[in-house]
Amino acid sequence: MFTRFSLRDYNFKLLITVIIAMICGVVMINSADSSFTPKQTIGIGLGVIIMIFVSLLNYDFVCRFYRVFFIINAVILLSVIFFGVEVNYAKRWIMIGGSGGIQFQPSEFSKILMILFTATFLDKLKEDNKINTLKGLCLFVLLIGLSLALIAVEPDLSTTLCLAMVLVTMLYLSGLSYKIIGIALLVFVPLAGSFLWYIQRPNQHLLRDYQVNRILQFIYPGQYGSDYTQQNNSVMAIGSGQLTGKGLNTSTIATVKDANFISEQQTDFIFSVIGEELGFVGSVIIIAILLLIVLQCIHVARNAKDTKGMLIAAGMGCLIAYQTFINVGVATGVIPNTGLPLPFISYGLSSLISISIGIGVVLNVSMQKTSY
């Protein structure tokens, strides 16, 4: 159950880099809204303890329960549909203990559960030489499609797309044939065009109105402009920080933060606080810290002892990389407005604890490294 190791085998580089990212996060959250600082600080302490504990568990032992992970994932996602708390037309949270209790977001834990499940499932498909068979691919699509569909109906389109990208990348890394990839691209491109055409039709049934508006705002900002203001204000905040920023905890009406031009800035738009208060230099440093974590995950994947360990580490690296790109892309107006936390930085205990569990498993993979 537990992995025997010596201290020299422990990946302190990854552990310390993650803790530094968490500390940077609580500093920026405190600057955005200090009322959230105590909870996030407790979350960091709890996250580090959980991360170290999980890192001592043998990932081979953990992955034996991959079927259980799939069932748990389905149960918690279904519980959101039936018992979830609705906020801004979306049911993404479950409240434990009634009003004033603990609120958590199951889709955040779903990311980790699905990475562990998919890594083990693909490892078994590869052992049976079924990765590039119709039966194997159909089973893969069916199983991950179920979880993605449950997240999509909350609705949480951003998490659905991000997790889909991670799992598809894991499928590619497991040894997917380039012939199949080429066929998939030939099918995907016209489907994407048809999707954009269809969502602009009256009475379309694929997306909610606000989701369609966000996409159309990005494509036609002059025609669909009202809700695009949030991103415009974020870009203005980042630009106003210039090279070195206005300084932490700046409390003047001259700041976008204190003028309340961006709502819930401590979560999805935390990068606007970073850009405004730390400037270009601070923004680059934060991105560099997250990049180091991703590179460490890739290094662990390259040196993993088996396919399963490689896919777990690569999946976690992809999750952090994709979420960072989406969060920063939204804050800078590069992609349409959608809600995803900046890993380790944004406020949110569900995100912090779940990703700590994932990094804990990666740390265990790194302790069992044998040239893959």
Score class of each variant (00 low, 15 high):
I19V: 09
L125S: 09
L291R: 06
T370C: 08
I71A: 15
M51E: 00
T160H: 02
G241I: 02
L319G: 05
I285S: 00
I29R: 01
I253L: 15
G101R: 10
S31T: 04
L77G: 11
M114G: 12
V328C: 01
V189H: 09
I312Q: 05
T252D: 08
Q223T: 15
S31F: 00
K369H: 13
L134H: 12
L148W: 05
A152W: 11
I293F: 05
I44N: 05
F188N: 09
I49L: 08
L142N: 09
P190L: 11
L207M: 05
L173H: 13
I238Q: 00
F218M: 02
G101L: 08
N73Y: 11
P38N: 04
I253V: 14
S283T: 00
T324R: 00
S35H: 07
G25L: 00
S346D: 03
V284Q: 02
G333M: 02
I19Q: 01
I44K: 03
L171T: 05
I289F: 03
S366K: 08
L342I: 05
S272M: 04
S346I: 02
L134F: 15
V62Q: 11
K130E: 15
V87Y: 08
E127M: 07
D258H: 10
A90Y: 01
Y59F: 13
S251D: 15
I102F: 13
A152S: 14
G282R: 02
P336Y: 03
V300R: 09
I262D: 09
N249L: 14
S147H: 14
L57D: 08
D268L: 12
V212T: 08
V166K: 02
S34M: 03
C162K: 00
F82G: 04
S366N: 12
M28K: 04
V166M: 01
A304C: 07
H299Y: 15
F70P: 11
I71L: 10
Y10F: 12
A184V: 10
V365Y: 04
L196E: 06
G358M: 11
R64G: 12
G245F: 10
G222H: 04
M165H: 02
V187P: 03
T41M: 15
L292W: 08
W197V: 14
E108H: 09
S110A: 12
Q204C: 06
R4H: 10
S356C: 04
I71G: 14
S251H: 10
S240L: 02
K179I: 06
P106F: 11
G45T: 04
I357F: 06
N129D: 11
R208T: 15
R64Q: 08
L295C: 14
M165S: 14
L150P: 01
A288H: 00
I19N: 05
C138M: 14
F344M: 10
L349T: 07
F69T: 05
I52P: 03
L311H: 13
F36H: 04
A237V: 02
